[in-house]
């Protein structure tokens, strides 16, 4: 079933690839980075700038190798940036300039 159907890579229920992979059940506290990204998402949601489904869609658009490699909140900041660029909240030129700032 895994191979025949065009399953999206985020759609993980029951897929064979992870059936024998152990679950890391240790607690991992959130970092300041994680909490900051999470807070941005909530503020953008409350201000109706970006919906939960828009956040998810741009996470799902991350290519599979990176989707599996990036941490949870690294995927989020990438999706948030993708959405804010697409919505014209800031331009790519503005983002490049901000990335250049020390």
């Amino acid at each position: 079933m895994d191979q025949e159907k065009p399953r999206a890579h985020h759609d993980m229920g029951g897929i064979a690839k992870f059936m024998c992979e152990p679950v890391d059940i240790e607690p991992h506290g959130l970092t300041e980075f994680d909490k900051t990204v999470d807070a941005i998402r909530q503020i953008l949601g409350a201000k109706k700038i970006m919906s939960t489904d828009e956040l998810r869609r741009a996470i799902e658009a991350i290519p599979e190798d990176q989707y599996l490699r990036l941490s949870y909140y690294r995927k989020w900041i990438r999706s948030i940036t993708d959405n804010l660029l697409a919505k014209g909240v800031f331009t790519e030129a503005e983002l490049r300039a901000a990335l250049e700032e020390p």
Partner: peptide, 12 residues
């Protein structure tokens, strides 16, 4: 991601 976050924070 860390650099992206700092840039986005500044722009927001």
């Amino acid at each position: 991601g860390e650099r992206l976050l700092q840039a986005v924070l500044g722009l927001l």
